[in-house]
Amino acid sequence: MNTTALPTALAEIVDDFQAVTEPERLQLLLEFSRELPELPERLKDHPELMEQVVECQSPLFLTIETELSDGGADSVRLFFKAPPEAPTTRGFAGVLHEGLDGLSAAEILAVPDDMPELLGLTRAITPLRMRGMTAMLGRIKRKVAALPQQP
């Protein structure tokens, strides 16, 4: 599958998933679930600052922030909260975090909406979970699109 439209880090993740067998893809998703960073202290005790992605079967919350990068442009920071007992949801949050965190708004908005399908998990996990993954990406893109535009 063609990953040239994806940001570099996300394209590398998709390539990793496509390079292994279906059972190994589930293991890779589990690795991403274990690597999902903890929330920073300023968000841990403030659930009102996070938005629930209700399409996910497990409770998943996310928020985005912008920060000025070294080059002077805004970069988007992603923060996720998902329970450890929801490894599929946490895994996909981990994929999105590793693949999109720190990119510009334009780079995130350019990610194809069907990117979750590129991971090759459509036969390994339920359609409902795939919809949750797609909804997570869609929610990030909507939140990024709503950010104030830089001059």
Rank of each mutant, 00 (worst) to 15 (best):
I140Y: 02
K141C: 10
G91P: 01
P87F: 06
R123D: 13
P148I: 06
E107C: 12
P83C: 02
L49E: 15
R139H: 05
G132L: 01
K143N: 05
T89H: 03
Q149G: 04
R34F: 02
E107F: 04
V111M: 04
V144M: 04
L49I: 07
G102D: 09
P37A: 09
Q27S: 07
D114P: 05
A124E: 11
Q18K: 11
T63D: 13
E38L: 06
I13C: 09
F92C: 01
D45W: 03
R142I: 02
L6P: 01
K143M: 14
R129K: 08
F17N: 08
H46P: 03
T126G: 12
S104R: 07
E85I: 02
P127R: 03
T3P: 09
G138Y: 02
G91W: 00
V14W: 03
P59D: 04
I140C: 11
A135L: 04
M130W: 06
E48S: 15
P40C: 10
T4F: 11
E31G: 15
F17I: 15
L36I: 09
E51V: 15
Q149P: 03
L30V: 13
G120R: 05
E24G: 07
P7E: 14
M50V: 06
P40A: 12
A82C: 12
E35V: 06
T122I: 07
I125T: 04
D74G: 02
A106P: 14
L10Y: 04
F79P: 07
P83E: 08
L43F: 15
L49M: 15
Q52L: 08
P84I: 01
T89I: 03
R142L: 10
T3Y: 08
Q18L: 08
T8R: 13
A73P: 01
F32P: 03
L62H: 01
D70E: 11
T3E: 05
D114R: 11
R129M: 05
L43I: 14
F92H: 02
I125G: 00
P84Y: 04
I13P: 02
L100Y: 14
L121N: 04
R42Y: 14
A82E: 00
L43P: 13
P87C: 10
V20W: 03
L100K: 10
E31P: 09
Q18H: 09
E12S: 14
S58N: 03
A135Q: 07
G102V: 03
E38D: 12
A110K: 07
D114S: 11
G94H: 02
R34M: 06
L30R: 11
Q149D: 13
G99Q: 04
Q52P: 13
S69H: 11
L78P: 04
A19M: 07
G132Q: 00
L103F: 13
F80P: 00
F80M: 06
L121H: 03
A82K: 00
K141A: 05
K44V: 15
